[in-house]
């Protein structure tokens, strides 16, 4: 828990800030994908369950209920984290309008979420490049995406430097055990 309460500072430049804002505002990685998968899975489950014994029926149905409960928890968490990070990015930028570097101050929980978000976006963009079509427009788009990936990697490196691998690993372990209420309280603390 301590690592999530600690406050971290990262200096980013204007360009990095705009890229981050742009990605946050036009996020292609959908928070609700898990939920969609869940809905698909549960339909398949229901079909396969027909004809199964009573005991199996109960455990399988319970399993689905627990899964759905977890999926909705994740959506609540991710939406709050997204909002909190977005607000901090916007405020930090407006406070330092005339400066080249922008200092963003985030509590541990949000820096961990930012790290996850960046990494997921990097993987997503790399995938786009890999599967890009062979025409000029797609190639140009791929070049632009490569630039964005480099910038996101730079920001991620800054996070590594500030947080240290040891703390990041500690976060990884604690993250899964965070209860919904604890998580939200951590996101809502004023840095």
């Amino acid at each position: 828990m301590r690592v999530f309460k600690d406050i971290y500072n990262i200096n980013i430049d204007k360009k990095e800030n705009s890229i981050l804002l742009d990605i946050f505002l036009n996020n292609k990685i959908n928070i609700y994908n898990n939920y969609k998968h869940f809905k698909k899975d549960s339909k398949a489950e229901e079909i396969s369950r027909k004809g199964a014994g009573e005991k199996l029926h109960f455990t399988a149905a319970l399993d689905l209920l627990i899964k759905e409960d977890n999926v909705t928890n994740i959506i609540i968490k991710k939406q709050q984290a997204k909002g909190s990070i977005l607000e901090i990015l916007v405020k930090s930028r407006s406070e330092r309008k005339d400066k080249e570097t922008i200092k963003i101050t985030l509590p541990g929980i949000l820096i961990y979420e930012l790290y996850l978000f960046l990494t997921e976006n990097i993987l997503f963009l790399e995938d786009l490049i890999k599967n890009a079509d062979d025409d000029v427009a797609s190639k140009n788009k791929a070049i632009k995406n490569k630039e964005i990936i480099e910038i996101l990697k730079d920001i991620n490196n800054k996070i590594y430097k500030e947080v240290s691998l040891k703390n990041l690993y500690e976060m990884k372990v604690d993250y899964v055990n965070l209860k919904l209420k604890e998580y939200l309280d951590l996101c809502l603390q004023e840095p």
Binding site: L25, L65, E68, D69, T72, N73, I75, I76, Q79, Q80, K82, G83, L86, E87
Partner: peptide, 23 residues
């Protein structure tokens, strides 16, 4: 579980409304 779901969906929709309007 159904009770939990109803509460959570309400929270999610409210969050989403606020977040989208903030954006």
């Amino acid at each position: 579980f159904e009770e939990k779901k109803v509460i959570k969906e309400k929270i999610i929709k409210n969050q989403l409304n606020h977040l989208t309007l903030y954006e």
